[in-house]
Design a protein around this nucleic acid. Structure first.
Lengths: 101, 101
DNA sequence: CCATTTAAGTTTGTATAGCAAACTATACTG
DNA sequence: CAGTATAGTTTGCTATACAAACTTAAATGG
């Protein structure tokens, strides 16, 4: 079994809170701030700071608009983000698969 | 899909370097310091500090002896450690499985 | 119409964590 | 005996996650 893969896993994605958000974005194509907050159970502060990191990484695109008179921030996965998720999932599945089949 | 599992994943195990070491211990039943170092590609300092954490968590048992005149430190998974690995793997597989089948 | 509360988000403060480099101690080797 | 290698720990720095405080603006209500 290979056990030297530890530096090949994407830490931006690996963080549970972010993986949770990304998992959500992976399936819905677009989600706004409040939806993600409700869905993941994360605090607003967490969503905000983690999203900054995901944006920096180029994994999500952020769009700020107004809905009625209230601000609305919506997120969606970029292509690189989707690709990175797939790579991450494949690698983790392989690691975990090796342990139990 | 459930996307609020982020706080139910065991961070002690989740850390890639430790997961790598644990994956190794999971299959070999007992491994010494140098073996783990070679196997995982981690530095001695990393093995040392991460193992301290795993020991604190009760996931590994540490045994210090001498082989010939040289010190030899060997590690093995405890039962709680093995159990925790299984729980971790199941949860992660579920998360990842939900994303791609 | 002013005061209060609620909502959406961001910034800040703190404690923790990971990693690499430096260090300790001991054993070989020439 | 001097120098190098081995086994392992400690230290110092940087980065990170999380919660709490803050900002801005809109709804509510007396």
């Amino acid at each position: 079994m290979d056990t030297s893969w530890h530096n090949s896993i994407d830490k931006v994605i690996h963080e549970p809170a972010r993986l949770s958000m990304l998992a959500c974005l992976y399936v819905v194509e677009s989600a706004d701030f409040v939806f993600l907050q409700r869905q993941t159970g994360l605090t607003g502060g967490n969503i905000s700071s983690h999203m900054s990191k995901l944006e920096e990484a180029g994994y999500v695109k952020v769009e700020k608009t107004f809905v009625g008179k209230r601000p609305n921030t919506s997120f969606q996965l970029t292509e690189p983000g989707r690709k990175a998720m797939e790579v991450y999932c494949d690698r983790m599945k392989k690691v975990l698969g090796d342990l139990a089949g």
